[in-house]
Design a protein around this nucleic acid. Sequence first.
DNA 1: TCCGTAAGATACGGTCCGTATCTTGACAAG
DNA 2: CTTGTCAAGATACGGACCGTATCTTACGGA
Lengths: 198, 198
Amino acid sequence: MERKVASRRRGEELERAILDAVWEEFLEVGFAKLSMERVAKRAGTSKPVLYRRWSSRVEMMLACAASRVPKADSVPNTGSLRGDTMALLTFALARMRMVGRTAMLGMLAEVSADPEARGVLLAGLVNEIVRSLNGSVYARAVKRGELAEEHLTERLRRLPFDLLRNEFIILGDVTDEALASILDEVVLPALRARGASV
Amino acid sequence: MERKVASRRRGEELERAILDAVWEEFLEVGFAKLSMERVAKRAGTSKPVLYRRWSSRVEMMLACAASRVPKADSVPNTGSLRGDTMALLTFALARMRMVGRTAMLGMLAEVSADPEARGVLLAGLVNEIVRSLNGSVYARAVKRGELAEEHLTERLRRLPFDLLRNEFIILGDVTDEALASILDEVVLPALRARGASV
DNA sequence: TCCGTAAGATACGGTCCGTATCTTGACAAG
DNA sequence: CTTGTCAAGATACGGACCGTATCTTACGGA
């Protein structure tokens, strides 16, 4: 919990200890009640040390999240659009669960006033993984002949993640059935509707 | 801003004055920085008076929101499913704009830990309007022959609002084009896909 | 060996929390 | 008109944090 060692930590080692403290503190008291004061105490250091690194609580928590959330690697080729998308959403869901609904909402809320911070958050937690989808899953589906590239609008590319994120934020979690219904009742039908007749 | 009148307000009158103060304060400093202390001062009263009515900041803000957000009345019959849904989403969007992204996120975040408060918030801001959709828009579309009732799953009923809410929360606002793309690229195609083939 | 740099400790004024206490005004019953 | 009740309103409290300033001291590189 606290420390009272003679040695003085620096650089990497110190930063690691702080981010670990942030995480433990987060698990213990939650996002809303996480304070610089407590983190400093838990890490066995002091507030100025934190403020030298991050200018705000959110920035610090983003650093913590970034240090723990797994990077999006490649998406497995399951042989079908549905399988690939399901795998991708499952991975994305796992990431969301690591952070948790409360923390996601808290960060979104605290960041919603500052356009710059908002950009950073969205880039890290939203767009990165969308690009991944564009780059492999949809490309493979086009190659397989499951999709026509010219019908892939921006909205359709974002669609699976928009629905997943909404479900997670509002309902608290996403069951397997919910995932399936997102795919089978919305995403795939929308993707396959060619002549979007009015 | 403040008041120093001899008369002592009570009941309805006092409550109105407080909720007005909450709203003005919200417009001025935003959701995150809104404090009981400042609201009390602005309303020309004191904290105990606030705490006698509402047990928390969120509860007070919900009361304020409820007193200002227009109730969902009837949905105009435009003659087509697309027109009806567009009208409904436009109305829902207007409501969201009155509250604002920051406040919505703030409330969702503060409420996300407490299941009971969460239920209240969702019931008021989500489900009410979904019921309205079920009750009239979809019923009319079924009567017109535009939809088959047996394909109207829970997910499809929620779909327009899920997408609207997500867009509003994440992107900050919803343009007319975005609204149109939600309808024409996702909602209507999904609704019309009969045999949800895998 | 020495010196710059950052760690770590402490303290500051400030805001806000939620609650307790007390006085005083408004209103109604008699 | 008198009087009793109840909530409004004022004030103060201990406590948690904020963000910053100041000062000493240990580490690590030159």
